[in-house]
């Protein structure tokens, strides 16, 4: 369950109520930031960052570094897969 959509915080709409304007594929909506703010942080510090949006709330910040790491890991699969493929093919032949 739980449709969650990545969106980018493009502005703060209402600092007191922690409401931001978040853009998802060129569509903007007011989104509540209460779940991704801590007391020490002004909402403005989040502008430009990406959040996971669910039912009008930003439920978590999206970690760009982690996203990149995941994709890099997947890109490396190819060369690894080729190697393994050859090895396993070899094993099958021996059997």
């Amino acid at each position: 369950m739980c449709l969650g959509v990545p969106g980018q915080i493009i502005a703060i709409d209402d600092s007191d109520r922690s409401v931001a304007i978040v853009e998802v594929s060129s569509v903007r909506r007011r989104i509540n930031l209460a779940c991704v703010l801590n007391d020490a942080q002004p909402p403005e510090s989040l502008v430009g960052g990406w959040v996971l949006v669910h039912v009008g709330f930003a439920m978590n910040l999206i970690d760009a570094d982690e996203a990149r790491k995941t994709l890099e890991l997947l890109s490396e699969l190819q060369s690894f897969a080729d190697e393994q493929g050859m090895q396993e093919a070899g094993i099958d032949e021996i059997r």
């Binding site: 969650g4 996971l52 439920m59 978590n60 999206i62 970690d63």
Partner: peptide
Amino acid sequence: YTRVVQPAGNRQAQAA
């Protein structure tokens, strides 16, 4: 899903 999920989850959300 490391780009979104932290091991401890979201503390603010849990508190609410």
